[in-house]
Write a protein that binds this DNA or RNA. Structure first.
Length: 419
RNA sequence: GGGGGAAUGUCCCGAGCGGCAAAGGGGGCGGACUGUAAAUCCGCUGGCUAAGCCUUCGCAGGUUCGAGUCCUGCUUCCCCCA
């Protein structure tokens, strides 16, 4: 749809910033948005205690929706998580206990009010849980009212299903039903709240369109679909993984320092795209930063890191992370608020083996890995490369700051504090 | 119900004459070069109290000095026939 020129601020912004992958009806949606009548939802499954950067694009979309005068709905998948979405999955998801789902839900909810305003006015956001209606469904009624609108022939041809079948992988009946529930969510939200747009990642296209179809058959007003691209780096790698795992949005799952570092390590080619997607900075300013060449683009990366971190962790924490990074990487010093662990003073007096220390700090997984890293020169104590696997750390190694700095590679540092 | 095939290093794919901590990829991590980038090159990618010991090839037994490899039973999946 490159020849389409939107009139609404909502679509103009989303298209200019690179959020749009596919839309079911650009003109129709644009007309709604121009009148401020879009009520859009994005669904989030409660599969972990925190969402990760992969969900951030859609959260930003909800935010822009509100900023441009429309109403966002954040849908918690308290019900659908009990079933499990097969999209993009090779294997059956583990079935989570109800208790886990509740815990995850409460962990996830917190991120939304950082970029979206909730309340009771026309453009204030709503948060709802699809467990509210899904758990009320009765099987026979559901088959009669909803199931009759679904064609198994069509369901079999959907990407999420076909992929499993073609690769001869298990697809359980419960998962096969996921799209029905998601489609039903859309119509239920349309009925309850006048919701008329569902947004999501491009892998959700099939499920969303199925919902539009169901809505039409069940008599809702016209519904719309809008998907965003899936997040990958310029070199094609899936984004959102670090050495320690996923890039979580919650600070208790991934520290502010590490979150800032994640953005700081963005590839050159991604800087402009990420600034548009993950910050609210004006496009003109972004264009200027993006144009920086060579080593100068590092300035843009720092701004990206601080702005993106400020959105999720607060301005103050983001500035602090930036400062920690500056003293650590640019001044070559030791910042006091690097991640740290405590070791009993008595233990340090007796002498703590380097290998053990690196394992305790969580920098390496095992003694064996620590040994191997010593071989390739990847471990440092107070910036001195470790060459002897028998080296002992004692209180005497603590610098003036009162801690011992352990480094793994060039970027990962942990302080050992006597306690 | 009958017949045939499959399951390998807890990231993934995948080889494996009875001597195997188990080929080769991908991914990941470290080093060099750089700009906390990319590309390229090199190394590593079961655990431990470490020239030794322990635990790994769907599960449980068996044969053998010795089993991922052979035999029996079981589980799960796929294909063909009914």
């Amino acid at each position: 749809m490159s020849d389409f020129t939107p009139r609404s601020e909502f679509l103009q912004t989303l298209m200019a910033r690179g959020y749009v992958h596919q839309c079911s009806d650009y003109e129709g949606l644009d007309a709604l948005a121009a009148r401020g009548e879009v009520i859009a939802y994005v669904g989030y499954d409660c599969t972990a205690r925190s969402l990760h950067v992969g969900s951030l694009i859609s959260i930003m979309m909800l935010s822009w929706l509100q900023k441009t005068g429309n109403k966002p709905i954040a849908l918690m998948g308290g019900g659908t998580t009990r079933v499990g979405d097969p999209s993009g999955r090779d294997e059956t998801r583990r079935i989570l206990s109800l208790e886990d789902i509740e815990n995850n839900k409460s962990g996830i909810q917190g991120v939304f009010d950082k970029v979206i305003q909730f309340g009771a006015s026309r453009t204030d956001a709503l948060m709802v849980d699809n467990a509210e209606w899904l758990t009320q469904l009765n099987y026979i009624e559901m088959l009669r009212d909803i199931g009759r609108h679904f064609s198994v022939n069509r369901m079999m041809s959907m990407d999420s299903v076909r992929m499993r079948l073609e690769r001869e992988q298990e697809l359980s009946f419960i998962e096969f039903n996921y799209m029905i529930l998601q489609a039903y969510d859309f119509t239920e939200l349309a009925r309850r709240y006048g919701c008329n747009l569902q947004m999501g990642g491009s892998d959700q296209w099939g499920n969303i369109v199925t919902g539009i179809d169901l809505g039409r058959r069940m008599g809702t007003p016209q519904l719309y679909a809008l998907t965003c691209p899936l997040l990958t780096t310029a070199s094609g790698a899936k984004m959102g993984k670090t050495a320690s795992g996923a890039v979580w949005l919650n600070a208790d799952m991934l520290s502010t320092y590490e979150y800032w570092q994640f953005w700081r390590n963005t590839e050159d080619a991604d800087v402009g795209r990420f600034l548009r997607l993950f910050t609210f900075m004006p496009l003109g300013e972004i264009a200027r930063l993006e144009a920086l060449a060579g080593a100068e683009i590092n300035e843009a990366k720092k701004i990206l890191a601080t702005e993106a971190t400020a959105l999720m962790h607060g301005r103050e924490a983001a500035e602090a992370a930036a400062e920690t990074a500056r003293t650590t990487f640019e001044a070559g010093g030791t910042a006091a608020d690097l991640p740290s662990i405590e070791v009993a003073e008595a233990e340090l007096k007796a002498g703590l083996g380097v290998l053990n220390a690196f394992v305790r700090a969580g920098l390496v997984a095992s003694n064996g890995e620590a040994r191997r890293q010593v071989q390739s020169g990847g471990l440092r104590v107070n910036d001195a490369v470790v060459t002897d696997i028998g080296q002992m750390l004692t209180l005497a190694d603590a610098t003036q700051a009162g801690a011992i700095k352990l480094s793994f590679g060039k970027k990962k540092h942990v302080l050992v504090r006597p306690a």
